[in-house]
Nucleic acid binder design. Structure first.
Lengths: 215, 215
DNA sequence: GTCTATAGTAAGATAGAC
DNA sequence: GTCTATCTTACTATAGAC
């Protein structure tokens, strides 16, 4: 998996050591939280001395911020660009659209690094402004907005029931959040997530049915 | 607000100092997480020396465990006892039942201490076995089970649409979780939560409507 | 059950040689 | 950009007097 981390000025990170530090930090923060994992733990994992870390990051906080900056970019990739929504509403039916969206999201969440950062997000949600902002605006709000636009266009085209598209967007999307939490919990325990896939399929079917679409 | 904390052997805690320690810990853990708040921070808040704390708790971990033990008991109070469900399904209609349930839950969540412990729960969810267990079994599973039973009985009585009651229970309950997260976020920021109440009302109305009940 | 005192470890971070 | 060495502070926890 080739990945492009970025620094706080949005420039790609080339240094292999800096990347190793980031990935060790992601691993440790996701298991013990930011304050539960020390700079010493991180550098031990990487195989450098503590003092060397400070050539790459000005302090411990900057590591976390860099992780969140990367994750914001990753979260952006989950949804299709706004310019495509017209095309999507034109060419796809409701169930195709929802299933495609889930596939996209699963691809995002099957990445081990993203998964770990999700866990860091939960841990830091109430404390760190970037975690809060990414969750609220980068994920929840953006997704609702995207769904709302597509649903509105589909309603126009008679592809689904006539109802407030924003309400539909919320009712479709919100149930997925506790499912994602459970998915992350199962993954962190190394357990099977088959049950989750079934849940998602049932939810899509239920929703489509409510919308006058028989899949 | 009179509250009964319990120790790890389930005995009520009488010592005022021990209670002060718990409440200071709840405050600090909810803001900084378990590993982000030190024993020193807690005792400073209480007004005792660090060494005195160890007369009340054998170590720092035991404080967190005691908090979770209390919360498990609090979570039990959110739902009506299983023996009442027959009566409920008999006497109430769907919307009454859901609204009553939300009032109950709001009463739980309007308690400042419970709110803070919810935040601790999120922070420790991936790390602490008790947090995991309370979330999964004490909250999510228990609520789904309760809803499923009541929905099944209401379907029997023709009070709502004939559908898999478990699916209905999930579709009703799951959307509430991200709403609870947002409620907790807003409260922790000292912001207004009116928007949340409106969300919940709209969700209940939407759900009832899907179930062939016009409220 | 509180205190003072202290042990022993671990934390984040810097100086300066190479 | 890595190292050794070090600083300073903070951490959990215990011993023992009152």
């Amino acid at each position: 998996m080739e990945r492009t981390y970025i620094d706080l000025a949005s420039n790609p990170i080339a240094s292999p050591t800096k990347i190793k530090i980031l990935e060790a930090a992601i691993e440790l923060f996701s298991k013990r939280g930011f304050s539960g994992a020390s700079v010493r733990d991180i550098t031990n994992e990487v195989g450098i001395k503590e003092s060397s870390l400070y050539k790459h990051f000005k302090n411990k906080d900057e590591i976390l911020e860099t992780i969140f900056a990367f994750f914001r970019k990753e979260a952006d990739k989950i949804l299709p660009p706004m310019e495509h929504l017209d095309f999507i509403a034109e060419k796809m039916n409701l169930v195709e659209f929802l299933e495609r969206g889930m596939q996209n999201f699963k691809r995002h969440l099957d990445d081990e690094i993203n998964q770990k950062i999700w866990r860091i997000m939960y841990i830091e949600l109430f404390r760190h402004p970037m975690a809060k902002d990414i969750y609220r605006n980068g994920i929840v709000k953006r997704t609702v907005d995207c769904l709302e636009v597509v649903f509105a266009k589909m309603i126009e085209r008679g592809k689904m029931v006539t109802r407030d598209p924003k309400r539909l967007a919320i009712e479709y999307q919100y149930p997925l959040y506790p499912i994602i939490v459970e998915y992350n919990l199962l993954m962190s325990e190394g357990k099977s997530t088959e049950e989750i896939d079934a849940q998602v399929i049932e939810h899509i079917r239920y929703f489509a049915d409510q919308c006058g679409v028989t899949s």
